[in-house]
Design a protein around this nucleic acid. Structure first.
Lengths: 193, 193
DNA sequence: ACGAGCATGTAAGACGTTACATGATTAG
DNA sequence: CTAATCATGTAACGTCTTACATGCTCGT
């Protein structure tokens, strides 16, 4: 699946939950899918325009300000099904944190500890967010047919955050064993020249 | 940090471990950093050329075929430190699996089960790879000063894979509870027109 | 009246992948 | 000798982000 159709998929999916304006699509992708998906602002409008041209969605003027509410057409429904059935596209990994830890010898123990502690705090934060979110969905939207699927994606976030917490604690322990007291960066050899 | 300097960072980092040819840099990024980092082929050569122009690396002809082995200059060392010290850049998330599960109501229970089972198998596979890798590093390169840091990144992969396994099992259970017997996609309304 | 948020777009430029093109070396 | 791998690049194309530009509406 080409990369562009990933944006198409997200937009069609958002509209499949309920008709909304382009602006609302953007908000929904940011707020609802935000934990595992992102689309940049400048992608959504052109994509919606193209989808309308191909008859996948149709806009309906609403209110006096000329904002148009888009909804899926039947062709759009089918297109969504088709895209969902295509194999999952995995983006090439780019984990800046692990890259820095990998080259940790150059920056030294202390810098690595800082990175890990920050990662731990971030994961803890996310864990709280996921738990609040899961609770909210389980109580408010419990009867929605989408709820079980939403909960599964939230659960993925929770497991990942928990794994990060455990890993970071583990890694910090291993660094402590390495050199309990000090840990500056390796000398840079400036004096040698 | 601009996105380009991420490539710079990976290339400088690779060369900080040992001098090598552009081709070897590419192989190292693919094979060694592969679990958490990727650079496309077409980026590495231009980046190396630019780095040489700026005096960050210097190439030395080796062998009769004119292949040049690059090594970090002092300026390159400093540049690497500087880049490593900059805040971690997080790429916007794009998890195609979770996107599909989120819209699971449209594709139906069976499709979601398939996705989860595949994800489980993939995670299991990765877990084995990480364990083999960790064992290899712990025995072969145990005395390398880079070994502790390498092991931390491998550990991250292990924790993540394990979390995926648990999450998928959990999710499969919750889907089973939802409808133990059937689970086709929602009707698409074709007949209604 | 004014600021926050709703709403719609465009354009430039950075970023990245893929395919193409070419040749040397080495293991089987 | 021949296939795989090492080795070096370029060019085209597609993708994505960011910044800019503009105006409305609603609450305070």
């Amino acid at each position: 699946m080409a990369r562009r159709s990933q944006t198409e998929l997200a937009v069609l999916g958002a509209l499949s939950m309920q008709p909304m304006t382009a602006y609302a699509v953007r908000s929904a992708i940011r707020d609802v899918l935000g934990h595992f998906w992102s689309e940049s602002f400048g992608q959504i409008y052109p994509t919606l325009t193209a989808l309308e041209r191909h008859g996948m969605v149709q806009g309906q003027e609403a209110g006096r300000s000329g904002s148009s509410v888009f909804s899926l057409t039947h062709a759009g429904q089918q297109r969504l099904r088709q895209l969902l059935a295509e194999p999952v596209v995995t983006t090439p990994p780019r984990n800046g944190l692990l890259l820095r830890l990998f080259f940790g010898r150059t920056t030294g123990l202390a810098a690595c500890r800082d990175l890990l502690i920050t990662a731990q705090a971030d994961a803890q934060q996310r864990l709280h967010e996921y738990e609040a979110l899961a609770e909210h969905v389980a109580t408010e939207d419990a009867d929605s047919p989408d709820a079980p699927y939403t909960l599964i994606t939230i659960s993925a976030g929770r497991y990942t955050a928990q794994a990060t917490l455990q890993w970071a604690a583990d890694a910090l322990r291993s660094l402590d064993q390495l050199a309990p007291t000090s840990g500056g960066p390796v000398p840079d050899g400036s004096a040698e020249r």
